[in-house]
């Protein structure tokens, strides 16, 4: 049970990182990124390939994975930063599917649908599995803390104020002489960098990456986390991520308690309840569970 709880907390931390990444672009700059799973994949594959194939040390691999995700994010943002929110949703969702297709088909690079196994983990093998869980628990939540602090400073820096101004009214910001495109691209890329970091940590935790792991469902979970927590609020993003894991894991036990259903019906109920939770949260808690105090208008 301890190991299970520790593992779920690691997952919650990884989801929290992704939610913070999503929040940076969405909550601050109003740019939605439904291609989140794709950027997580870039970070995960980047670090996995560099450490496994080229023998890079793990910290360097993780940094490179983060950087790769940032570059991919900046590239996409340069193209699409001016699109309306709902158009951006369509493009980014498609982008993640393209990343998954490339990961599946460019076997020479990614080993295809076989995935990459045997990815090293910090102290893996040197300590017991449970101790390894705890090491990762520290590492992941340490990263969450770090990203949290950095984003908080960012949010209150002039950069953050410009981003919020952009989100509220782009024209006013532009009139104020701010290079709108550059700001939005930087916010988006910072967000994808954090997703890439989460992906890299995920790769070293599980020791394995494969295209199937980066399905759109992951993006739905993180959007759910951020919605539950409140767009624009970092504490909310972290709380939302924990809530998503509680929901995902809790439904296992709840759905199982309903008698007379076939297992496939339990499975359907579980996925349906995640969807329903998101719909209900969108409806009743549009500011999230912990709304950002400084905001006048709910995001997005």
């Amino acid at each position: 049970m301890d190991a299970y709880l520790a593992a779920m907390l690691v997952f919650a931390g990884l989801y929290a990182l992704m939610a913070l990444g999503l929040n940076l672009a969405w909550g601050l700059a109003g740019m939605v990124n439904l291609g989140l799973a794709g950027f997580v994949a870039v970070g995960a594959y980047g670090s996995a390939l560099l450490t496994v194939r080229l023998g890079w040390p793990m910290p360097l691999g993780i940094a490179a994975g983060t950087l790769l995700a940032a570059v991919a994010g900046a590239g996409l943002a340069l193209l699409v930063a001016r699109l309306r929110g709902d158009y951006l949703a369509i493009v980014t969702l498609g982008f993640a599917e393209v990343i998954r297709l490339i990961a599946s088909n460019e076997t020479w690079l990614t080993n295809g649908t076989d995935g990459i196994s045997g990815i090293p983990g910090p102290l893996r093998g040197a300590v017991t599995p449970q101790q390894f869980n705890l090491v990762l628990l520290g590492l992941v939540w340490g990263s969450v803390g770090l990203v949290f602090l950095l984003s908080a400073r960012l949010s209150h820096s002039p950069f953050g104020r410009v981003l919020r101004a952009l989100r509220e009214d782009e024209e006013v910001a532009a009139v104020a002489g701010k290079p709108v495109l550059a700001f939005r691209v930087r916010a988006f890329a910072l967000g994808t960098a954090i997703c890439g970091l989460a992906g890299a940590l995920y790769a070293h935790y599980n020791g394995y990456v494969a295209p199937d792991g980066f399905a759109p469902l992951l993006t739905i979970y993180i959007v759910l986390a951020l919605t539950a927590g409140g767009g624009g609020s970092m504490r909310g993003a972290v709380a939302g991520a924990v809530l998503v894991i509680v929901l995902l894991e809790g439904t296992r036990f709840l759905a199982g308690a309903i008698p007379g259903l076939a297992p496939v019906q339990h499975a359907a109920l579980r996925e349906a309840s995640v969807a329903l939770a998101l719909l209900l949260l969108l409806r009743w808690r549009q500011q999230g569970l912990i709304p950002e105090r400084t905001l006048t208008k709910a995001a997005p």
Binding site: M1, A3, Y4, A7, N206, Y208, D212, L248, E249
Partner: peptide
């Protein structure tokens, strides 16, 4: 999905 599979396996093994 390997991600969901790992969480499920954790639950089966640890709980």
């Amino acid at each position: 999905n390997p991600d969901a599979g790992v969480r499920s396996a954790r639950k089966l093994i640890d709980v």
